[in-house]
Design a binder for these strands. Structure first.
Length: 334
DNA sequence: ACTCTGGGTCCAGACGAC
DNA sequence: TGACCCAGAGT
DNA sequence: GTCGTCC
């Protein structure tokens, strides 16, 4: 089974989660290795389960996302200040605020170009294909699914559905899947459950709060669903809405936001040829053990697992592994 | 009393030895 | 980012 | 399962 994965999202998770004593893992020269550690082992795991992952990297964010990105930057600035304060307090009270320091450090995490390039180099050596999306990775993933180049997108982000991704897999990380089953959402079933078509669903998501626009104060999930079912489009909703109670945001650019979901900037999936190839064991050892000080035995062992899984004829279906669950109603924000 | 929103919080991987 | 809890506004 | 360790 071929599956598309939003690479930046994974890297972000790894940078936050893969830590020791609150700090990211690093090579001796202080370079972070958490993202490589996570990518290496999780990918091996997936391949061993008979899944062929294809990683999709973000490109330039759309202009409309600027507001959201500015907010995130602001939050990081805020965390930076809090971190500084906590560190100073730490010196005074000796370890009293160590937890706070950790907490604020996490909020500062950002996936850089370097992280992405290093991950690509690793994937290359592992024989795993990756794609540079021109814009939003989720949009490119959805396009790959629609074109039948992969079976599904594996993500925690429901935005993939808004982009029209037919099949979405949640919790496709098998360590987590032990606690909670992997969920498989089918877009057509979701639409059926909500009794909406794709365009109506997009308008709904815009009301619920997407990265591209503000949302209407006072309108949450309940009212949004009711509004879209009554009026079937944002234009009609705006016409009929009591704007005294529910003021439309100033300069509300919902039309362009809608367009970003309907016709996102993507590479034509037909021009993409995904190839899973033999892992380069010596290359992996050279890269991970030379520069990054990974344990050689573990790296070689990982390379062998990749090799073996690759040459095991049509590995067991993953359906046997998890509960297929076409939930009709992911009625949450986003 | 009930419903809904929105603001706050917390959390976030994988391996292997035991 | 998502999931959960709680306060408070609105009904 | 829990927990220390990975780098």
């Amino acid at each position: 089974r071929k599956v598309a994965i939003d690479a930046s999202m994974c890297l972000y998770q790894f940078l936050i989660a893969v830590r020791s004593e609150g700090a990211q893992l690093t090579s001796v020269d202080g370079e972070t290795t958490s993202h490589l550690m996570g990518t290496f082992y999780r990918t091996i795991r997936l391949v061993e389960q008979g899944i062929k992952p294809a990683y999709v990297f973000d490109g330039k964010p759309p202009d409309l996302k600027g507001g959201e990105l500015a907010k995130r930057a602001e939050r990081r600035d805020e965390a930076q200040k809090l971190l500084q304060a906590a560190e100073e307090a730490d010196i005074v009270y000796l370890l009293g605020n160590a937890e706070d320091v950790e907490k604020f450090n996490r909020r500062l995490v950002k996936v850089t170009k370097t992280h992405a390039e290093e991950a690509k180099q690793l994937l290359q050596l592992m024989g795993i294909p990756f794609i540079d999306a021109p814009c939003e990775a989720e949009a490119q993933c959805a396009a790959l699914v629609k074109a039948g180049k992969v079976y599904a997108t594996a993500t925690e982000d429901m935005d993939a559905l808004t982009f029209g991704c037919n099949v979405l897999l949640r919790r496709l990380t098998f360590s987590e899947a032990k606690k909670m089953p992997i969920q498989e959402f089918h877009f057509d079933k979701v639409l059926e459950g909500l009794e909406l078509n794709h365009n109506e669903f997009i308008d709904l998501c815009i009301m619920l709060g997407c990265d591209y626009t503000n949302s209407i104060k006072g309108v949450g999930p309940k009212r949004a669903i009711e509004l879209i079912k009554t009026h079937r489009s944002l234009e009609k909703i705006i016409e009929n809405l009591d704007t005294k109670k529910f003021p439309i945001p100033k300069d509300w650019n919902y039309k362009q936001a809608r367009l970003l979901f309907q016709e996102p900037e993507i590479i034509d999936p037909e021009t993409i040829d995904l190839k899973w190839t033999e892992p380069d064991e010596e290359g992996l050892v050279k890269y991970l053990c030379g520069d990054k000080q990974f344990n050689e035995e573990r790296v070689r062992n990982g390379a062998k697992k990749l090799h073996k899984a690759r040459n095991t004829s049509t590995q067991g279906r993953l359906d046997t592994f998890f509960k297929v669950l076409s939930s009709p109603n992911p009625l949450k924000r986003k």
